[in-house]
């Protein structure tokens, strides 16, 4: 039982954050399924006390899936569907696209019955910031080498997103990048763009 609950909580492995503060129940618990009390009652009760994305979200999900299918089908038609004896480049993507459209519509049609989507919380901002920071750092690699953007990324992620103290994050970042440098550049001779 305990393991079920823990998994519902998003798993401990990467959750070692003694540093994580902000006891924001509503958001943080968005996925924490208290499965144990529901043990004898069947699944539906368990969904009640946690915010779950509802019908609209799943409607949108279904629509996105179906529209993806429509898009890929259009390209497939453009590539040519071919025939059985001469299958074209679009034959297979066409078949799969149609399946995708059907699935998307089914998801949309049954949107009200899904309870497995989570709402986007305000903490999702952290995710967006992390992704942007990561993408920017990686894009800088070819221009200034991987070392400085990497150190900056590590410090930013540890201290701004993770609330670690700078006197901890800075040395760790520098050491980590130095170790990567030795491993990948010297050890494995990976031709990663580098400054030094």
């Amino acid at each position: 039982m305990t393991d079920t609950a823990q998994d519902g909580n998003g798993g401990g492995a990467a959750e070692a954050s003694g540093a994580g503060t902000a006891p924001d129940q509503a958001t943080g618990h968005s996925t924490g399924q208290p499965t144990d009390p529901a043990a004898d009652h069947g699944p539906e009760e368990s969904a009640d006390d946690t915010p779950r994305a509802g019908r609209t979200t799943n409607l949108v999900c279904g629509a996105v899936v179906a529209l993806t299918g429509v898009g890929t089908l259009a390209v497939a038609l453009d590539l040519g569907l071919g025939s059985l004896s001469q299958p074209g480049a679009g034959t297979w993507p066409g078949i799969v696209s149609m399946i995708l459209i059907v699935i998307g519509l089914l998801i949309a049609a049954r949107a009200a019955t899904f309870t497995d989507a989570e709402p986007i919380t305000k903490d999702a901002v952290a995710v967006a910031v992390a992704v942007v920071a990561l993408a920017v750092a990686v894009q800088l690699f070819p221009y200034v080498g991987f070392e400085l953007p990497s150190v900056a990324l590590l410090v930013f992620w540890m201290s701004v997103l993770g609330q670690e103290k700078l006197r901890l994050s800075v040395p760790i970042s520098v050491i980590a990048v130095a170790v990567f440098y030795l491993t990948f550049v010297y050890g494995l001779a990976v031709p990663i763009p580098r400054l030094f």
Binding site: N9, G10, G11, G12, A14, E15, A16, S17, G20, T21, A22, P23, D24, Q25, T27, G28, H29, S30, T31, G32, T121, D123, A124, A126, V127, A130, L161, G162
Partner: peptide, 9 residues
């Protein structure tokens, strides 16, 4: 995903 939920862990 954990980044978003970390605060509560």
């Amino acid at each position: 995903h954990n980044l978003e939920r970390r605060r509560n862990a």
